[in-house]
Design a binder for these strands. Structure first.
Lengths: 193, 193, 193, 193
DNA sequence: GATGAATGAGGCTTCATTCAT
DNA sequence: CATGAATGAAGCCTCATTCAT
């Protein structure tokens, strides 16, 4: 409990600063100060700023994956499984707005760009993504979904989700349960045949 | 025509550098070099880097607005007008990938954040957006579109468009006319009642 | 005369600080301060600290080369040419003690190590050295000098020269003309058959 | 025997790292790691990095002194005694290249500079040096050696030895017994009348 | 208007040393 | 004695901006 404390503190401080102000607004000194440690201490746990940023991203990704895996209704119809995933993701992001904003910053940066390229070549490493992809593949072959490239279906479903999360965070809308239900059904409408 | 040449050169250089490498990869010295002017010269035309970035954004926004206004089929049915706009936007972005990437950089940065806040309070200033909003308002009252907040319809339609553009730029897909047609119809499916 | 000033000032400041205190005692900030410029200014003229150090070394080397080339008695006997070179070198170093100490620092550092390796493989690039080598080769084939590897003759001649310069700089001895004459003859004794 | 193990380990680790990579390449953490102890442990045995460096130097110096004292032919002629010493030194350094490189690093650093100053004022503390000095004093008064300051004779003899050791370590030459014999005789030629 | 040398605050990282355990 | 996490001063370098020419 002791040794881990500072590492966690640093990650939390980095999460908050980067999510709220971007990488630009999060110099190592500020992260250290917010975490209540000395600058050098960060380097006891992370090799560099890049490493901190990447590990934090992977941590958040892992948490989301874990959350979505729980209770995933493997045996239910495609539509239900799809809605389970996107709703689960949406609820998670609403509950953890900092995670959402951090991941957005990450994707929109050299870090995210190189990661995307890696994943394009190798395997995804991202569980939700994998599960969604499988759902899409199944849906296409069973003629439930539109006959489009899987990547396209992915964008049709996740693109609006991201966009709505932004509106929610900026306060343009309030994503309550009713709206979650309605918008996720709209994603389905976009991809279903 | 001579004096304003340099202003244009600077904006073009900034566009290319920022679109391709992000704000991080576009120091003023690099922009000046690429534009073929001296560093100090930039400050003859722009008060600061922030000003350059913002003016460039507004310039691009204006160009897109102008393009979309042309030939807008005011008298045609709602669906057609919607598809006209999103397809026009998509084709414009495909033809001008640097504009797309620049605007993404812009939205995902302190600049974009404050802009969004401004627009939330005041008026949009963005023409396409306004037109789309009007289409949505009309569609809701005529019970053609889902009864959701206009902002939500906007995200349902534009979110996937952005996401697909990214896939296109990263080379995951090729947005040819067939795919443009199919995907934009999917946006319509997402918002239509 | 203006543009060059600062570059020269920086090199002079670096020379003095590094010669007197070693690389450790010459942070860029101190060099800048001593040169009367801002830290960043150094980077207008040198790409990095390494570049500054290397360019300064090459500058000093060039000066010595130039000095020794002047008046070199090509037509005189071997012994005379040898003495001309070592005495010229010794007088130069006595007149420019900072140059000597700087070059010692340089040779005794990662910079010098990699340089030596480079020179071992490629060509020397150092004129005096080349001339001395030629003298040695000639002396061996004419049976004037000991039949030893050229590198060994070089060390037999230059090793004591360096060592004496150190003594001189530390004030253990005063290398006046008499002593220059005597010691350089001793180098000759060491290498002559 | 157990307690002093770590002290020895630390000194050995410091010797290797500093000899091979210079002071720059030997942070305390690296020394500790190589020695298999914790960073803080070093401070149980040495007050500071400076102290470690100095004590290590003195240790090496002592070892060399001890080696050279053994079998020193007090009763033999001057030339023989001289050759005994320089050859012994050369053989020792060839057998212990890390010692040589460490001492070079040491001499060429603020540590060495202040040491030299100390020795100039006080007494030498270095046994070999003392013995050599005595040989030189004797040789001068008996008109066997050149009539030069003792310090100068020292440099004439030891300067080339150091220089040759460097060539040997860098692989430019191989100091085998034949070369040892020849080069040490060359030192003698340099100092003998 | 145009230049580009100069500035210096601010960013990331290293490392000798300390100290609570 | 031994540990190694923690410290923070200090080092190298970048870059938006200014200003004398």
């Amino acid at each position: 409990m002791k040794a881990s404390d500072k590492r966690v503190d640093v990650m939390q401080a980095a999460l908050e600063l980067i999510a709220e102000q971007g990488f630009h607004g999060a110099p190592m000194a500020a992260i250290a100060k917010k975490a209540g440690v000395a600058s050098g201490t960060i380097y006891c746990y992370f090799e560099s700023k890049d490493a901190l940023i990447t590990e934090l991203f992977q941590e958040l990704e892992g948490k989301i994956n874990g959350t979505l895996r729980e209770g995933y209704p493997v045996e239910r119809p495609l539509r239900e499984r799809f809605l389970y995933l996107v709703r689960g993701l949406l609820r998670y992001l609403i509950a953890h707005p900092l995670h959402f904003r951090y991941m957005e910053q990450y994707f929109n940066s050299p870090y995210g760009a190189s990661m995307r390229r890696d994943r394009l070549l190798g395997k995804s490493g991202n569980h939700d993504q994998d599960i969604l992809m499988e759902i899409f593949a199944e849906g296409i072959s069973e003629k439930i979904l539109k006959d489009l490239p899987i990547v396209v279906l992915f964008s049709l479903a996740v693109g609006p989700l991201i966009s709505l999360m932004r509106d929610h965070i900026f306060g343009f809308i309030v994503l309550d349960e009713a709206l979650i239900k309605q918008t996720t059904e709209a994603y389905w409408d976009a991809i279903k045949r």
